[in-house]
């Protein structure tokens, strides 16, 4: 049985990474607005999740946000654009880590089901 709640939350976590990577390669302001919006959504979606790695997932999402918010400000101020790109890359790394943890959690849950 497919868990639609999981599809919904995982969708945002993956979209956060893909939109971020899109910005890193295109340097496009539209893509940046989408990236920061999706990253914030992905963070909020992790609020209150009671999973094994909930704290770590929330932390990585907050790290990504705190990279992207200064990146957005710097990018639109047109001052340190390369730094803005660098920050976006940092955020992308945090997104990758959160996806890795998502996979670890899936494995944990699989084992738990077996024990029962």
């Amino acid at each position: 049985m497919i868990n639609w709640g999981k599809v919904w939350s995982d969708f945002f976590i993956f979209l956060a990474l893909t939109s971020n990577v899109g910005f890193i390669f295109s340097h496009d302001p539209y893509q940046l607005v989408i990236a920061i919006g999706v990253n914030l959504l992905a963070t909020v979606l992790k609020f209150g999740a009671k999973k094994i790695l909930a704290a770590e997932l929330l932390a990585t999402a907050l790290v990504a946000d705190l990279h992207l918010i200064p990146a957005t400000i710097l990018y639109f101020m047109e001052t340190h654009v390369p730094l803005a790109i660098g920050l976006a890359i940092g955020a992308a790394v945090a997104n990758v880590i959160s996806i890795i943890m998502l996979i670890i959690e899936v494995i944990f849950e699989y084992h738990k089901e077996e024990e029962i």
Binding site: I34, I36, G37, L41, V44, L45, F47, G48
Partner: peptide, 24 residues
């Protein structure tokens, strides 16, 4: 306290989504 954050999930998502959409 964490449960309060959980209740804020969908309202905040709506705000963020529409802000991004409007700006875009």
């Amino acid at each position: 306290f964490y449960n309060i954050l959980f209740q804020l999930r969908y309202p905040l998502m709506t705000v963020i989504f529409f802000t991004t959409l409007g700006v875009l």
